[in-house]
């Protein structure tokens, strides 16, 4: 196939010209350098290509015939040599995903249960987190706090006696896996514990960045409007649990809980929902139980893995 225009008919053309197409169409904006306005790289005459050492992949020769467009790129626009089309096929977020994998392996090795808490600003994430930490002191806990500026949230967490690392993203709108890896290096041993990663308040961007967490937990407060899951579907699609926060305020609002849950389930049929209030304590036992069950399941999973590995090694004796 012709990688210049996508047509399927340009297998061979002579001297890089497009004349061999049997069908009539024009490239709106051909790739050749001649169209560029920088002026430093106008379309190179083919002779120059040969002189520049780029010709080795340009030509496929048999006798006196030169075939352009038969190299790996199948390119045949004037002045465009084969070596100059580079097929990449690489995910743009691939680098973040590789860091996330590294974090995940580290979490697994420590049997550490990591949660990525995502929400819009002002949903009550930090208050919910401090209440959670105060009530859930069964294992090592630490918090990575993401904000654009200030260390206010980390200070609030530290006031509960728990280790917290603040990551200020500056102008950044989300945490990425690389930042989390660096923050992890500053934390004490968390084996068998829970790591809460409080993301930057933003219902858009953090959805796209895997941090290596076991689950994303979306926090939505009842003061925000029940259609939020439909307005920001990517976040609710990426989350496994939605905490519907500040339910103690429901008597004073027109918020329709059923409609909100329907919206969330429409975006993500598998999402679990817990109605909660850090202030009144409603839903807290259910949330703490959810954490405990998943943390224990993770350790059991690790035990199963290690036992299997042990039996395999014993069989080798």
């Amino acid at each position: 196939m012709c990688t210049v225009c996508g047509c399927g008919e340009a297998e061979v053309s002579i001297e890089g010209h497009h004349d061999e197409h049997s069908h009539s169409h024009q490239h709106k904006e051909p790739y050749p350098n001649a169209t560029r306005d920088t002026g430093d790289s106008t379309a190179q005459p083919l002779d120059n290509c040969f002189n520049s050492g780029l010709n080795d992949a340009v030509e496929v020769g048999d006798g006196d015939n030169l075939h352009f467009g038969q190299g790996p790129a199948h390119a045949h626009a004037p002045g465009l040599s084969q070596t100059r089309m580079v097929q990449i096929e690489q995910d743009i977020l691939g680098k973040n995903d590789r860091y996330a994998l590294k974090n995940r392996q580290q979490f697994d090795a420590l049997s550490l249960f990591a949660l990525n808490l995502v929400s819009s600003p002002g949903s009550g994430k930090t208050s919910l987190l401090t209440t959670t930490i105060e009530q859930y002191k069964r294992c090592p806990i630490a918090v990575i706090e993401g904000d654009q500026q200030t260390t206010h949230d980390a200070e609030r967490i530290r006031a509960t006696g728990i280790q917290a690392v603040q990551v200020n993203t500056g102008k950044g709108c989300h945490l990425d896996a690389h930042m989390v890896g660096h923050a992890m290096a500053r934390l004490n041993d968390l084996s068998g514990g829970v790591l809460f990663i409080e993301n930057v308040g933003n219902l858009v961007c953090p959805a796209a960045f895997d941090l290596g967490e076991a689950h994303k937990v979306a926090i939505l407060s009842v003061t925000e409007g029940e259609d939020k899951p439909l307005k920001y579907p990517d976040m609710f699609y990426a989350a496994d649990l939605m905490l519907l926060n500040k339910v103690d305020l429901l008597p004073y609002l027109d918020f329709d809980v059923a409609q909100c849950i329907t919206a969330a389930k429409r975006v993500n049929p598998k999402i679990q929902v817990i109605q909660i209030s850090a202030r009144s304590g409603e839903g807290m036992p259910e949330w703490l139980n959810w954490i405990e069950q998943h943390r224990v399941a993770r350790i059991q999973q690790r035990i199963a893995q290690l036992s299997e590995q042990t039996s395999r090694l014993q069989a080798m004796l």
């Binding site: 790129a73 580079v86 990449i88 995910d91």
Partner: peptide
């Protein structure tokens, strides 16, 4: 999809 497909380079 969010990926780089190909490049024209020199």
């Amino acid at each position: 999809e969010l990926r780089i497909k190909e490049l024209e380079v020199e």
